[in-house]
């Protein structure tokens, strides 16, 4: 599958660029939704590495996203006027990398002190951490405080978003589908046994947190340059829960399922717009029905042993 994985990556990026070049032929609303979908795919697949594969129940993904989003946006706002227009994509890429890196540092900062915690306890601590980040942005004048950050240039397009999504899928799938990466699942299944087999559970957990947070940060950066406006309210714990729902619905640790769930759960609220006031009730109801009928994940077929990409 090795070369197949690389081929997937190149094909996906090429497709994203082609679609993006034709974007003037598409409805702008649909294009916007497609970018929302791509961002949520990045968030869900990266959270899946932490929650699904490694089994560390984190509720702080929106926090990592906020770190990345604000960093990328601030970086662009500071440099925007000072560099010639041709440097724009460079600033954007540098900003995304910077945002991802800052989020990765935040992931490290959460990962290290919470290593001893499991399950519910870890969930509560990461939830608290996400809220702390949100409040920091909400009170810092340099980041627009409660009013938010405005005037962010519109640089995110279909190609950037879906190339990043393809890269996220590539990284997570390649990691897990290797002898090295089976360690993540071993930590998920039984930490004590994993330790006895020479796996360092601490290192694997931190790695998962750092990589997951990095891509959440990139998603935040894309989000910032897509909406052109950042407010702290957009990164509250409900956003984290949205992402967790995608992971659970897709089937913990199942990349393809999680992608499909991210696509569905982004499109669903849009498709239900016709129901106006009843929209969120219907949305919640559908999630309840799905969880009741397919608790093992929407797209989990066959036995758990057949772990595919």
């Amino acid at each position: 599958m090795d070369n197949a994985a690389k081929r997937f990556l190149f094909a996906a990026v090429a497709l994203a660029v082609i679609v993006s070049l034709c974007s003037s032929y598409f409805n702008r609303y649909y294009l916007g939704v497609a970018i929302d979908v791509g961002i949520n795919v990045i968030l869900a697949v990266s959270l899946n590495l932490i929650n699904g594969h490694t089994g560390q129940f984190s509720l702080g993904h929106a926090g990592f996203m906020a770190v990345g989003g604000y960093t990328t946006a601030k970086f662009a706002l500071l440099l925007q006027g000072q560099l010639p227009p041709w440097a724009q994509p460079l600033i954007f890429v540098a900003g995304l990398l910077l945002g991802g890196s800052m989020a990765a540092v935040a992931g490290l900062a959460v990962g290290v002190p919470t290593l001893r915690l499991k399950g519910d306890y870890l969930a509560i601590v990461t939830l608290g951490f996400g809220e702390i980040i949100r409040v920091i942005f909400q009170t810092t004048e340099a980041f627009g405080a409660a009013t938010g950050l405005t005037g962010i240039p519109h640089w995110t397009n279909f190609a950037w978003t879906w190339s990043c999504a393809a890269l996220t899928v590539f990284v997570v799938a390649c990691l897990v589908n290797s002898t090295y990466g089976r360690g993540f699942i071993a930590v998920h299944d039984d930490e004590v046994a994993a330790g006895a087999m020479g796996i360092n559970p601490v290192r694997y957990k931190i790695t998962a947190f750092v990589i997951g947070a990095f891509f959440a940060g990139v998603a935040g950066g894309l989000y910032a340059h897509h909406k052109q406006f950042l407010s702290p309210g957009g990164f509250d714990f409900l956003k984290s829960i949205d992402i967790v729902v995608m992971v659970i619905l897709g089937g913990m640790g199942r990349t393809v399922g999680v992608i499909i769930a991210a696509v569905l759960l982004t499109i669903l609220p849009e498709a239900l717009r016709g129901f106006a006031g009843y929209r969120m009730i219907l949305y919640s109801l559908l999630i309840i029905i799905l969880m009741l009928t397919r608790p093992q994940g929407l797209f989990t077929f066959g036995r758990a042993a057949q772990r595919k990409v």
Partner: peptide, 19 residues
């Protein structure tokens, strides 16, 4: 017994070979 419950027989051994 503490086998890795979500993995195949093959992968259980593969994790250990990784050392």
């Amino acid at each position: 017994i503490r086998l890795f419950a979500s993995m195949s027989v093959f992968d259980n051994v593969r994790v250990a070979v990784q050392l």
